[in-house]
Design a protein around this nucleic acid. Sequence first.
DNA 1: CTGAAAGCGCTTACAG
DNA 2: CTGAAAGCGCTTACAG
Lengths: 373, 373
Amino acid sequence: MALFSYMKDFIHVYSNNFCGAKHAFTLRSGPKSGTIGQPFENDPSLTMTSIKDVALHAGVSVATVSRALGNGPVSAALRERVEAAIAATGYHPNLSARRLRSQHTRTVGLVVSDIRNPFFTAVSRAVEEAAYQADMRVILCNTDENPEREALYLRLMQEERVSGMIYAPTSTMSNRLPANGFGFPTVLIDRCPEDCSYDAVVLDNHEAASQLVQHLLAQGYRHIGGLFGNTSTTGAQRHAGFAETLAAAGLPAPTRFIAPRTEAAESATRDWLVSGQHPQALLASNGQILAGMVRALRNLRTQIPHELAVVGFDNEPWTELVGPGLTVIEQPVDEIGQTAMDLLFERMKTPTRPARRIVLQGRCIVRGSSITR
Amino acid sequence: MALFSYMKDFIHVYSNNFCGAKHAFTLRSGPKSGTIGQPFENDPSLTMTSIKDVALHAGVSVATVSRALGNGPVSAALRERVEAAIAATGYHPNLSARRLRSQHTRTVGLVVSDIRNPFFTAVSRAVEEAAYQADMRVILCNTDENPEREALYLRLMQEERVSGMIYAPTSTMSNRLPANGFGFPTVLIDRCPEDCSYDAVVLDNHEAASQLVQHLLAQGYRHIGGLFGNTSTTGAQRHAGFAETLAAAGLPAPTRFIAPRTEAAESATRDWLVSGQHPQALLASNGQILAGMVRALRNLRTQIPHELAVVGFDNEPWTELVGPGLTVIEQPVDEIGQTAMDLLFERMKTPTRPARRIVLQGRCIVRGSSITR
DNA sequence: CTGAAAGCGCTTACAG
DNA sequence: CTGAAAGCGCTTACAG
């Protein structure tokens, strides 16, 4: 409502005043000035009021307007006049100018590897919420597990001069993280090489996978196989927990590494099952793989859990609704996002503090997919 | 790989040169200068190389560096020297400065109402992809159906001076969209008042809901109820298609309007079913509602479709995996995102063109949840 | 408390 | 093709 009248005022002012005198310097912008083939943009300079317009309107200096905007020391009388002028002109501060001048962007970059993965969607929401509370913006970038896009977005982080970055590197970059950091505070999430010198928030992947295997062993399963994502340290760690727990029980750990995508998981599962000698139970190392696995079983008319038990990662809403319900590890997604932001803020305050690695525990939710009786 | 060495060079340069002479003007930034209680940021001016450093290093003017960066007219010799200097100094252009000076941001704002809704996740990906192709950034904002957050983000769009906006308004704002626009090209998606003067890409909601009802009628169902979201024009339109199709068949259309969330749908469904006189078939107006509905049925041990048939919107991967498979309307999410970007570009080119409303058809995917035989 | 002035890092007419 | 200079819209010492 307030916003609406704001807009109307804005439009109003645009079509009347403040558009004549102020542009001694005109741009030659137009269709030809952009990259070839790119659409050109309206010239915002013609439509946007600036702090100068507000100052003129209020009869004060731009410095005073700026102070009124930023809770600086301004007398009540002037502040009032400035506020009236802002309302009258429909002024909106220009963030580019503010960032350039103040040399801080109040922006955190969030670089994730697959926004279709609900794990990252959930973490994103938590990060955004925390940023919102701290009056910061977040730039969300989806690398899609593609190192080229990743390089592009890391460059973007530099160009945007982000205050900090929360980052889930692809496996390619995991081994090549700059030893001295990126030039701004960085917190890794979900994935982190064992030896790395970055702040990080990760799941205890080894333990979580181990829990799933122990649960299956307790249920009497002995032939247990696993499908793991091949693009991250996370998949590798979950595999380690899986394999070591089976080894401790004196059992083999048949494993396939695949792209962490539904389609890849579906065909891998199908191939495995039609190969004849398939396991009694299968573990999926993330939600996408789990979905592909279930789809394959469905198409093959394989009964869960009687013909094949299934366990996996990520407690997505639908895992409760499928078949007898799927046994999964739930990750503390809100805590991961919140903690990552906390680490970022601490790092900003104390740039020299030694790197901290926070390991969070998953929660094993047992459902029908792994219970034969 | 290229990126890695880039980073290393960057760090290297930072700790050596270019940090002495250039700051005649120093900021007093520090812990006290930010908002109270907010963490302060490292002063990037101390760590960042600028175009001036590159020019110095290459022995050319800043204008030449700028031209080399932007494909301007530069001799091959100088271009080479500039590129070497960029590599040596680890220079990254400052986007804030560039945007301020050039008066275009190459940024599109994407304001959605619920990022947990996979429909919006999918559309976001399509928009991002199209933006990426056009060398533009996207700012993704999630209003969470909250008009306050929405107002905040609309203000942010102004402050960021976005080139354009793709926008799914809450029902509150739907009635209050500024008649003259926001001051930049805007395309509505998913939701759009009937009479509105904005460019828009929407589903033929009336027809899609009608299709679902016709399918149920053809299957012999006569007592058909519906759960619809109450926060958007979309829910209302789907309800209209639902109710009118039933009316044409001379049947009543028992309806409940709810918040478009899983939890709300679950409790509404439960209440409806335990009330005794429940329908034979139920329609859900989006994916979240559909999920809540299925969960309620599961908890009540109600068999789909024998005790209750279920149809709904949004062909999310899991709808195929639940029970006998769920009959749904699939939305052309990629096309929606792509088309919205196209409309935005066209609007930028021809600001005065009359508003265009593009109505896309859904696809009805019939699965076991609505087939009794 | 207030204003005049400098300058953040770029891009772009303008004049060679 | 190239450089010197102006200026985008702000914030912030500095001097009253």
